[in-house]
Amino acid sequence: MARLAALMAAGSLLVSACGGGDIEEAAGPSEGGEECGDFDIAINPWVGYEASAHVVGYVAATELGCNVEYKSLKEEVAWQGFGSGEVDVVIENWGHEDLKAKYIDEQGTAQDAGPNGNVGVIGWFLPPWMVEEYPDITEWENLNTYAELFRTSESGDKGQLLDGDPSFVTNDEALVENLDLNFTVVYAGSEPALIQAFRAAEENREPLIGYFYAPQWFLAEVPLVKVNLPPYEEGCDADPETVACDYPEYILDKIVATDFAESGSPAYDLVASFEWTNDDQNLVAKYIAEDGMDPEDAAQQWVEDNPDVVAGWLG
């Protein structure tokens, strides 16, 4: 054992000796960072988010010299990170009034940094072939007529309404009940499960209706069609038991850590002024998901193709 320790010690001496190789040169002085420092971006688990985050991160690293770190986290977990200094920004937030109340109003560890330009749509979607086949199916009043089509081994003698990622708020059980639909909610349990189901439904022309949302990269592959539920009105979803209207549109916004906002980091200014469209995001998301590009490469490509927009963010 003593011998082992001696050898280790000798080894570590060798290690600490500086080499004359090419790494010393490559290391060089840091590329800035004095101004910006560490910039921690949470990555919530969907590709559109990843697209936005990497575009911001790419710009922060190349233009502002930030040391950017991406942290893959579910939303709730990411919000907790604001307080502990682990997370500086959530770049695409869907509503989450409860989290806002808790972390912005109560704890004050986070604050709103304004909309990011994307508009979120939640609702019930159908594969395109069904809309071609049954044009009137997109109106909710007609859904009961077709309930039979949607029966599966999971839904028994009712039609199946496939719900999605456990991360998303859903009123679907109440909606089915309150709209008197002859359907039952079946929980796919994850986004991949949902996408796989829609993909198979379109490919094999199988009937399927399910919970989905935009922006989402998959819509670039299969343009799902949204069902028209009774239109949303302010307050119609106040009571989750009696809700009988469509989901509201979400103005997606950016949430930042209070400490980060007050740090004077140039990255905060970038985040505050960052804004782009659903199409922009879907494009970058498609680069990543469909074309298999590395998120960083995808971000670089978009930034290089849209210098004016980027210049706008940097003021």
């Binding site: 060798l14 080499g19 010393e24």
Partner: peptide, 9 residues
């Protein structure tokens, strides 16, 4: 090996 890996990319 450690020395090499510290010196050469």
């Amino acid at each position: 090996a450690v020395y090499l890996s510290r010196s050469y990319l």
